[in-house]
Every structure is written in structure tokens, then in C-alpha cells.
Design a protein around this nucleic acid. Sequence first.
DNA 1: AGAATAGTGTCTGTCAGACAGTATCGC
DNA 2: GCGATACTGTCTGACAGACACTATTCT
Lengths: 219, 219
Amino acid sequence: MATKRELFPLVVVDVAVFTIEQDQLRALLVQRALEPEAKRWALPGGVLKPDIDDSLQAAARRVLRTKVSVDLPHVEEVCTFSGPTRDPRGWSVAVLFYALLPRDKVHALVRSKVEALKWADPTHPISGLAFDHGLQLRSALHAVQSKVEAQTLPLHLLPEKFTLTELQRTCEAILGRPLDKGAFRRRLKNSQELIATDDFVRGAQRPAQLYKASDTFTF
Amino acid sequence: MATKRELFPLVVVDVAVFTIEQDQLRALLVQRALEPEAKRWALPGGVLKPDIDDSLQAAARRVLRTKVSVDLPHVEEVCTFSGPTRDPRGWSVAVLFYALLPRDKVHALVRSKVEALKWADPTHPISGLAFDHGLQLRSALHAVQSKVEAQTLPLHLLPEKFTLTELQRTCEAILGRPLDKGAFRRRLKNSQELIATDDFVRGAQRPAQLYKASDTFTF
DNA sequence: AGAATAGTGTCTGTCAGACAGTATCGC
DNA sequence: GCGATACTGTCTGACAGACACTATTCT
């Protein structure tokens, strides 16, 4: 006798939220409050609600608003994970997204409907996550790394204005390897992606010029 | 009053099948036999069947077996299309894949459960396709072009053994621009992706050496 | 021989990595 | 002045595009 589950798969969205803390790349994990997989750490995710979501991407943004009270405009699809056994509730499709949280908004997150939040280091595998979220996190990391490797600037991880050194540290944190300062700055000068502002950061040494994204920039 | 459709989205897979005909890139279209959008041209696609599919990718391969009687081992996910209005049946998720059909197997296709088949030129937009398949086809084309632009060889479009000139013509058809012969061949010599065979093509002029994919090659 | 296609060699511009050098701050 | 960080200039090697050149076949 066929149940509804055998005719209609469960559709969920999961989101890997990345940020930068102390020049290190971090990924957001939430501790699940409800079954299945209650109490286990997982990527924030939720079941698609066709009655209130206008698209899968909108569902991903709703999940972030609901679980950590943050609205991130830039949410990108990575790929899907599917099959009869990845979720104990039955045949499921998980659509994975990633989002970048600006470094200066890390402490704006508020947990809601989850037991706890934490930031983990995604650059080496994390075991024990719920469902196939360990695999999903690796896929999301790879997607972000490919994007930066392909010369895209991860400006959404930075405040509105930032120094070139901060941007370089951010790229290095994502890629997991050092970049040459001269080559990095030369590339940015030649591209039209950044606009130099008149502001400078006055710290303990020589002031650094602040830059911002050009109007034409899109991640 | 909520219907089932408002709680469970329809999940479908669509596949853009590419091949090479007379040194031109072609995409497979099928004429739909059933409502909705009966009689209109579309990408081959079908509803996910959780009771017989082990994954979305397996569903995509099943669709190709069912509709055009071909089993293609290399089916890659592109992205998803979703929303309440893209399919008249209600809120739907379409997962788009692309597949490459070897040039020498173009005539192995047999229509089944569709009115007709045809090969279209995907390099300029095709209007009038069912659902959002015009948009999907553009996305799939872009995915294949990006892959080849990123130095991946589209060997699945060629017979098992092929000449370097044939490979170059194939890449040119996908990218829509000419490639330099010297640079193209130099790159292949330096990479370890191809193996030279002892066979030659004897045609109307100087024989050309045949190559095959190296064992380590993966698309 | 001539046409046609296969295949090679060479020049050059571009660009990234390496790294040394200069500039400007706080102390 | 000195340390620290910001920023620039230059050398070099890798590589892609351009293109001319040679090689081998058929007619």
C-alpha cells in the first residue's frame, strides 16, 4: 500500500553560511531541536513550504530568517542531494545553498527554534553532522573556493569599506593558501571591481586606504 | 482549504542532451504527448518517481531511457528551477541536468511516449518551448561552455577514438569561437588527458593519428 | 605538381609569482 | 631612529594567440 511519502518526496533546503572570524573561514552549525536527528549539529535547513515560499532560494532565505534571525540577500545554489535513505523520514531532496555573512555581523545572529549555534572550521572535514551535512558542507566549501579561485571577490564577507590587505586575508582564508601581495593588488587595480574611497584606516602603523565595491559588482 | 499540491511540490527532472552534427552543437527537443503543454517542444523530462528512482540523477537517466531509449552514463546537474507558476500543475521544482551524446550515436535514439524528436541549435535562443525550458536550455548551454572553457575536454561527444582536429572542431562548436591549432595541440601534448593510439584515419589527404581518453580522464 | 589536411616551430604579448625596494605612520 | 604595515617597481618564467612553416597523403 503506497503512502504519500512514496509518491511525493520530502523537499528541504539547507544553507551553508560562511563568515570570517580572526582571519579564519567559519561555517555556521545549528544544534537541531526536533526529530529527526534531534540534538545533533547540522547546517541550518528546513522543509520547503510551497504556501509561503516563492522559490527554493526564497525558502533558503526564510530558513535563515527563522533560525538565526538574519536576512542575507546573496544566497547561491550549490547542488542537490537526494535519495531514499539520506533522511529517515523517507525519499528526500535537499537543495544546498551557501551564503556569506559579513564579518562585522557575526554577532547579529540570534538562535530560534534550534538548541544552539556555533561556528566551525570548514576547511577540514567535520564528522558527526546530521544527515549528509558533512558532505554538503564540503560541497559548499568547494563551491565558494572555486568562485574565489575564478577571480570573484568575496566582498560579501567584508564590511562596506575595507582595506586591500583585509580583502587579501579573506581570500587567503577561503582558499587556504597565501597570495602574493603585489600580484593581488595589481589585479585589483586593473579590474574595475573596486572603488577607492577617500577614507583611511588609522591604526598603529601607516594608514591603509579603504575601498568599496563598484556599483557594477555582482558576486 | 489546502490541497495536497500546496503541501508537496511537484518534483521533475529535465535533461538537456547535447550532441555534435556536422560540426555543429545540437540540443535534443521532444514534442510533448501529454498535458500540460501537449504538442509543444520541450526538453526531455519527467516526474520523479521515488518508488523506482534512487536519486535525482538516476531519475534523469531513467527519463532518457524511457523517452529516447538511450542510456547515458554521464549526466551532470546544472541547477534547479522552482516556483508556484512555472508549471500549471502547481508549485514545482525542476532539477536540470545535461548529458553528452556521442556523435556516432545520434541515430540510435528512438522516440517513445513523445510525439516527435528533433535536434535544435542551442547557441541562439529558442522561443516557444514548454514551461521555462527556453531558460533551462540557456543555462545548460552555459554550463557546458563553462566546463570546456575551464579546459575540460568534451570527450563524451566523440567516438572512442578520434583525431585532434575532430576534438578541436567539437570544442569550437561548443564555445562558438575558433581556437588556435598550435595552442590547442600544445596544450593536449603537455596534459596527460589523451593517449595516442597506433591507428590512423586514412582519408583524402594526409592520415591523422587517432587518440583516446586516458584511463584517468573524468569529465 | 598541386591541393588539402596533419602536424611543428617560433615570436610575442600578457600575466602571475617572487621579491626587493620605498612610503608613511606610531612610538 | 626603529619597527611595522602599506604600497610600488622590476625581473622572470609559464603560457596562449598568431602565424608561418614542414610533412604526408590523394588526385
